[in-house]
Design a protein around this nucleic acid. Structure first.
Lengths: 332, 332
DNA sequence: CTGAAAGCGCTAACAG
DNA sequence: CTGTTAGCGCTTTCAG
């Protein structure tokens, strides 16, 4: 409790002196190594208390070559990435898993080439033990950069660079949506897809068409506004539609608004199914029936996988694909 | 470019050997200290290139006593903090400012007593240079803990613990809303407030009443669902209301849904004004007229202030209060 | 079971 | 302008 004006923050050395033992011994008890006499442990513990000692993480890192931090890199989507309800769930899962391992995520943006270089150099300089990538752009160069640098990394969504990844079975999820719509008696289906160059979007489109047939499609870019626009176009071109699958909840929320503004009851006239089960699904009125990705679990899996790679650099790239589920609410 | 199988990652020593100079000199050019002969600089630079050298941040930190990371602590609101559209804007501002200073935020949750202790010890152990706190609970013990530990910290929203903080002029913002509603000819006003124990909520309520008079109030807890419930109660108790000020956008979004479900046109029958200008304001239909907090700027200001405290530990606690503005959209 | 000693990679006086 | 010399605080063989 009492600190005798140390002048500076106490070190292992100080504790050792107070306890009358060597630095090594103090280090052992601090790190919970058993081979220390019980009585000495007690003495050391008291000395720690008395000095107010707290181990210096940096000094420790220098020798263990581990920082206890991993980069959480979000790459793409311009400014408002952090406002994305989907990203919030990923972070939540990541943080939750990491904290159990005494590790914290270092938030980084990789929105420009310069920012990507920063991320890379931060990792090369040992600023973090590895990287968790959440990216939307399929042409993002960062995964490749990390891969060639041989840095531990796990990406969200399938990647082609020989890195570990975590993903959801997009096509099967879209199939769930299609079957649900069909099961509700809808026969004039349509879909609002993601940007044509995003793999997850392609898979959802393909999966939907695989069971719904060659239905009309309008592309959005995963934002609410783009969902509104796509829905408007869809309605103009195919006024007869009675069921639509939207590739994410945010766009679905936008679609819902347009539908209702046009006097179509949901789900009465048109049934709508979203994808993600993000907070947007609950914010929408009616509440969205949607294909749920177990995002928190996926985030946790990324963290776990990364930690495994950090612990064993020889570990081969691994992938984990999660099964989506249908959450039935009010929109379909 | 070429790396001659170093076996291990190259150090300053290696570069020095290749360049034929001392470690100190290499260090100087790496850190951009001018007092180095141009020719030698060139030689060193080539050696760095050749060896593929990257400075070891940890080793550097050990001597500079600075990590280049700050804790970004979010404290409160159970699980879904990261999904909060408001928090996303804060993070965005923080990240944007920090990156310009080569610093990154270490994301931490302080949702339990144990988690708070972790945050504290991480900081005491030099895991980060300081802390940025975003907290909702007024009785959060973390600010006090950081204050007594003498750790550099800046909190979002006024704090009583002698720490620096950044805030918005809540009362004036609420006044803006009241005057706008009045200006639209609304005479039967009401308000949905935040939890009675949150200072920001109290200030908004007081500010609104200061110009609108002693209007009816129902309390929510800043979530969408609580906004729905509060609006329903308000409507039941005061069916005549024609204008309502809601203490944040998420609750306003909920209120909007209830109003419309009850057959009240917005803004025709009831005008609604929110607070924050978060993404919820744009997601709502009609789009929310709202009191905008310059949250990104505020986040950036927090970061700046913290960096100043880190650079000069003697710096006295400072506060910056931002002026809110009214953003007129479709709901009022 | 405990201590002595050798670094981890870098910066920063201090000489020259 | 450059090199030498101490450390920063900790872990970890290696002896005892």
């Amino acid at each position: 409790m009492s600190s005798r004006t140390p002048g500076r923050t106490p070190t292992l050395e100080d504790v050792a002196r107070v306890a009358g033992v060597s630095r090594a011994t103090v280090s052992r008890v601090v790190n919970g190594i058993r081979n220390v006499d019980q009585d000495i442990q007690e003495v050391v513990r008291r000395a720690i208390e008395k000095t107010g000692y707290a181990p210096n993480r940096v000094a420790r890192s220098l020798v263990t070559r581990r920082t206890g931090a991993v980069a959480l890199v979000v790459s793409g989507a311009g400014g408002d990435v952090f406002g994305d309800p989907f990203f919030g769930r990923v972070v939540s899962g990541v943080v939750d898993c990491l904290r159990r391992h005494g590790t914290h995520p270092l938030l980084m943006l990789a929105d420009t080439a310069a920012a990507r270089d920063d991320v890379l150099s931060c990792l090369r300089q040992g600023g973090a033990d590895g990287a968790l990538l959440v990216t939307t752009h399929p042409d993002d160069r960062l995964p490749a950069m990390l891969a060639v640098a041989g840095l531990p990394a796990v990406v969200f969504a399938r990647t082609a660079h020989g890195l570990s990844y975590v993903d959801v079975a997009n096509a099967r999820g879209a199939g769930l949506a299609a079957r649900h719509l069909l099961g509700r008696g809808r026969r004039r289906l349509a879909t609002i897809s993601g940007p044509p160059d995003v793999p997850a979007g392609q898979e959802r489109l393909a999966g939907f068409r695989a069971v719904a047939g060659d239905v009309p499609v309008e592309a959005g870019n995963f934002t609410l506004a783009s969902g509104e626009e796509a829905m408007a176009r869809l309605l103009a071109a195919h006024p007869e539609v009675d069921g639509v699958f939207v590739a994410n909840d945010l766009m679905a929320q936008g679609a819902l608004g347009v539908l209702q503004a046009e006097g179509r009851a949901v789900p009465g006239d048109v049934a709508v199914v979203g994808f993600d089960d993000s907070s947007a699904a609950l914010a929408a009125r009616p509440k969205l029936t949607t294909v749920r990705q177990p995002v928190e679990e996926m985030g946790a899996a990324m963290a776990e996988l990364l930690l495994a790679h950090v612990a064993d650099p020889a570990l081969a790239p691994t992938s984990r694909v999660f099964e989506p589920t249908l959450v039935v609410r009010d929109s379909a």
